[in-house]
């Protein structure tokens, strides 16, 4: 059986908010290491990779690997019924037809349980290689969100160029062009999460669909910083770390010049 108790139930809402615009269903894989999900958007252009490590839960029991296929839209509806401060317990049997969600209020004066039907999802798992990124940019997640939103007001595709001087985001649309350069600022008085840091072995440049990058920024409430990893001619990774728990990562295929 699988049973996991999460003290910060609000975290689950944030995780679901970060994927609900991209996928409509997904297999949550319960394993002794934690709860994970890998899923592609309907156009198979991007890939979501979530990991919530077992150590991050107050109680975690998983005897064997269990794929828990869930409709994300319905899951969002159920988790919405939890208070943001509620403790959430997720429970299911080894071959589940249903998953139980138990919500306990912080003061233990209200307990609710919801049962949701599982579904069989035949999805293709992809092997994401462990790779060294040619360029890694760490920046405030709110700044990245703002930047993607601003770029999307002008064009559909953003070109991201990373050099040791900084990261240049450029787009072109019917009304004109936009360029935003973010420079590394590791030496100021800023707190660590307010800094922009760039690590590169060589300059990298590629174009990406802003529609997807904008969807990824729905994960902003999960982390004060976001990390972009780029390798020439490979998908970009956009990573939001979840403190003491794991991550939400998005991979997006680059645009290819015809």
């Amino acid at each position: 059986m699988f049973e996991a108790r999460l003290l910060q139930g609000g975290l689950l809402k944030k995780v679901l908010d970060s994927i609900k615009d991209i996928i409509t269903e997904g297999n949550f894989d319960c394993s002794p290491n934690g709860l994970s999900l890998q899923a592609m958007d309907s156009s198979h252009v991007s890939l979501i990779d979530i990991l919530l490590e077992s150590e991050g839960f107050e109680h975690y029991r998983c005897d064997r690997n269990i794929p828990m296929g869930l409709n994300i839209t319905n899951l969002v509806k159920m988790i919405k019924c939890a208070g943001s401060e509620d403790i959430v317990t997720i429970k299911c049997e080894d071959k589940p037809d249903n998953v139980t969600f138990l919500f306990e209020s912080k003061d233990n004066d209200k307990i609710s349980d919801f049962e949701m039907k599982t579904m069989t999802i035949d999805d293709e798992h992809l092997l994401v290689p462990d790779q060294t990124y040619t360029a890694v940019v760490k920046m405030p997640s709110a700044e990245f969100q703002r930047l993607c939103r601003d770029m999307a007001a002008i064009g559909d595709t953003v070109n991201i160029s990373v050099t040791k001087e900084g990261v240049r985001f450029s787009t072109t649309g019917d009304m004109g062009t936009a360029n935003i350069t973010v420079r590394p600022n590791p030496s100021g008085d800023q707190k660590e999460e307010e800094r922009t840091e760039v690590q590169i072995t060589e300059p990298v440049s590629a174009g990406f669909a802003l529609r997807y990058l904008n969807s990824f920024t729905k994960a902003t409430p999960l982390s004060p910083t976001v990390t972009l990893g780029m390798v020439p001619n490979l998908p970009i990774v956009v990573e939001y770390k979840i403190a003491d728990m794991g991550h939400v990562r998005y991979y997006l295929a680059p645009k290819i010049e015809d």
Binding site: L127, K255, I256, D258
Partner: peptide, 14 residues
């Protein structure tokens, strides 16, 4: 115009 390949054209099936 730039084309949009799928993610599976970069990552092999697991």
């Amino acid at each position: 115009m730039a084309g949009q390949p799928t993610i599976a054209s970069f990552f092999a099936p697991a």
